[in-house]
Simulated assay, not measured.
Amino acid sequence: MRIILIFLIFFGNLSVYAQCEKSPLKPFQDNNLWGLTDGLNHIKIKPFAKSLLDCNSYEIDHHFYENISFKTRHNYTLFQENKILHFTNEEIDSIVLNHHDAYLLKNNKKGLVRRGVAIMKIMYDDIKPSLNESYIVSLNGKSGVINHLGKIVVPVEYEEIYPDFDYEYGKEKFNWRALKAGKQTIFRDTDYYLSKSKTSKTVKTGLKN
């Protein structure tokens, strides 16, 4: 049984490692500990972690970035776009990676780290990526919208939310329609636009929600 477990761990780590082949930073193992090296095999992070949990690389504007999670005995460590974030076992139960996002889970609640910036506290029942690089979040049966900077665009108090493709679409503004008790309200996200010539800027907002 122990041999089978070692086999599964070994080949599981190899599979995770393979997902990072295009990443600027790559996991490597030394004396049963994991660290990070660059494409020239220069050690960037000395081996420190017992487990390599998950890894994916993603491309933005023709540049590849890493999204890698590790586990030590007492901590989780996340690497995104050359940024390092540490979380204790008391702070989170696990990390789930998806593209440039990392979902932090604790007691069936979710928070979010996006491109190396923690933009949502661990407090939501669910977080779903949506259009305009925003997220529809839910809490206690109600929904809202948080944008890519961690700003609450639509308060978490509505029954239904969907993007508005018609309202001032020609002006490249992005809007959301939210329904509550049969009444519709329109919210505009002023931080991002539909035009590809306009790009979002990364702002360190911290856990502000």
Results as ranks from 00 to 15, higher is better:
R2H: 10
Y135N: 11
S197Q: 12
F48K: 09
D189M: 10
K198R: 10
L36G: 11
L36T: 08
I152T: 15
L40N: 09
N41S: 06
L25W: 08
R177T: 04
E66F: 09
V203K: 14
G182Y: 04
S69V: 04
V145K: 00
N13A: 15
D126T: 14
C20R: 07
K201W: 11
S143R: 15
L40I: 05
S23P: 03
V113L: 07
Y158W: 03
S94C: 00
H42D: 14
K208T: 15
K121Y: 03
I6P: 00
K173P: 00
L14I: 15
V156I: 15
E157P: 01
T205C: 03
P129Y: 06
Y58G: 02
G182E: 04
L131N: 06
K22A: 02
S51G: 00
T190Q: 10
S138H: 01
K26R: 15
E168P: 02
D101Q: 11
L207K: 12
V145N: 04
Y65K: 01
L53W: 00
L40G: 01
K201H: 10
D125C: 06
K180R: 11
E172T: 13
K50A: 10
H42F: 09
G206Y: 08
C55K: 10
L52P: 03
G116P: 09
L52V: 13
I119Y: 05
Y76M: 09
S94K: 00
D126W: 02
D93H: 05
L36S: 10
F28I: 01
N175D: 03
F64T: 04
S23Y: 04
L85W: 04
K171D: 11
Y65I: 08
R115V: 06
F48L: 14
L104E: 13
K109C: 06
I68T: 12
N209Y: 10
Q19K: 12
H100N: 14
N147G: 06
L207V: 13
E81Q: 13
H42P: 01
S143D: 04
R188G: 04
T77H: 13
G206L: 12
V96A: 07
K180T: 01
K173N: 09
Y169D: 06
F28G: 02
S69C: 06
N89R: 09
H99E: 11
I60F: 12
N98M: 09
L179Q: 01
L131F: 07
A102R: 04
I3P: 00
D126S: 09
K110E: 05
R2G: 15
D125F: 06
L40P: 00
P129A: 06
